[in-house]
Amino acid sequence: MRIKYSTKHKLEMVVLFPGEYHATGYPKMISTLLGSCVAVALFDERKQVAGLNHFMLPQRLSNSQKFFLSDAGKYGMYAMELLINEMIKIGALKENLKAKVFGGAKVLNFPDKRTINISDSNVEFAFGYLQEEGIPVISSDTGGSRARHVLFFTEDAKVLLRRIAGRDSDSIEENEQKYFDKIKITDKIKEKLTFF
């Protein structure tokens, strides 16, 4: 995560990298570059709390199993819960939350059967999760073959989206590949249990 100041918008800008999230009760811009990953913007208009995440699943969702029963789905649920919990701590109410969904372009090329078309699974998971949790999706821009730059304004939940191609897209692919290699390892979840 990197904090910058936008002189153009006169706002603090939080730049998110793959696997990160940020929630706030203040007017800010949260920015991220998306390839195969998805970003879910959540906001509670009444309580003026908003947040954005950036994640991908460690493997493709299975067609025969509900997403919340699979290991890949559980990783996504964890990514979503981190953001929702942070927003609730700041004062958001879950029943007020609305969502916008972005990303899931076919940017990464995985030869492995477990990960081929992972961008589709990322998008499928985001919509499935939000539906199951009763969080309405009010806008989205997903799929396709071009990476995206998302700029989320937390004050009014407005999003500026730009599609990216060429060399700029290469660095996104590189960052996402590094993130994917990391979550592939953490997918071997260690039990973190404390007995009192």
Partner: peptide
């Protein structure tokens, strides 16, 4: 929970919890 900070765990212990399991976890765990 997703919370793994020690002070949160101590709060749980003081309240009377018997254990603390941090998400994500596998079903078998």
């Amino acid at each position: 929970t997703t919370e793994s900070e020690e002070n949160k765990k101590l709060e749980g212990k003081a309240a009377g919890a018997s254990g603390w399991l941090v998400k994500p976890f596998k079903p078998e765990q």
